[in-house]
């Protein structure tokens, strides 16, 4: 019995060793081939302009001059996710400030949904909203509550999105406002 057990182990381990040896030749070869760089257009760059996504949605930063909303950026995080950021300057109470922020285009023949949500880096009681075709989408209210909103884009349509802020009190410091845009 013990003799048969003794003879069995080489039968099991020898094929495994052969596979391991082959692996030691194959793995470095594949790794080296994978490490060989290629030439490709950079897809991950900071956009600041037009970005295309596979579902035919493009988002374009308008970059209009404004005294309140400055330093705007539009960054593509993944294929379907974008991040819009702006620095909101100090401002007077009970006054609404608004500007054209970005343009969303749907170049497909079907409806597309875009989900937006936003947050500020401050504890002020400012309202932040987006305005599309005269419809307000409140993203943050005076209780600092944040909301997720859905914008529906018709086939082959383009919508200009305004960013807007309002406060009951004077805001004496700069605030960063970030909008997450996700194409669904």
């Amino acid at each position: 019995m013990s003799e048969s057990k003794k003879n069995l182990s080489p039968k099991i381990f020898e094929p495994l060793t052969i596979v391991l040896i082959l692996g030691l030749f194959l793995i470095p070869t594949l790794t080296v081939l994978n490490l060989s760089p290629i030439t490709q257009k950079n897809k991950q760059s900071n956009v600041l302009g037009v970005t295309d996504s596979p579902n035919n949605i493009s988002i374009e930063l308008l970059n209009k001059d404004d005294n309140i909303f400055v330093g705007e950026t539009l960054r593509r995080e993944k294929d379907r996710d974008y991040v819009y950021t702006t620095e909101v300057q100090p401002r007077e109470k009970e006054r609404e400030y608004s500007k054209q922020a970005f343009r969303i285009s749907n170049r497909s023949n079907g409806k597309q949904k875009v989900v937006v949500s936003g947050y500020a880096d401050s504890t002020s009681s400012s309202h932040f909203s987006l305005k599309v075709d005269g419809v307000w989408y409140v993203l943050r209210d005076d209780s600092k509550e944040m909301y997720e909103r859905e914008i529906v884009l018709g086939p082959n349509s383009t919508k200009t999105v305004h960013i807007s802020t309002y406060s009951e009190k004077n805001i004496l410091f700069k605030e960063a406002f970030i909008v997450n845009i996700s194409v669904r």
């Binding site: 594949l30 760089p37 290629i38 030439t39 257009k41 950079n42």
Partner: peptide
């Protein structure tokens, strides 16, 4: 077969 690829934006650098 590879999930990660190293790349450069111009062919001379590559």
């Amino acid at each position: 077969i590879f999930s990660i690829q190293l790349y450069y934006t111009d062919s001379t650098t590559t």
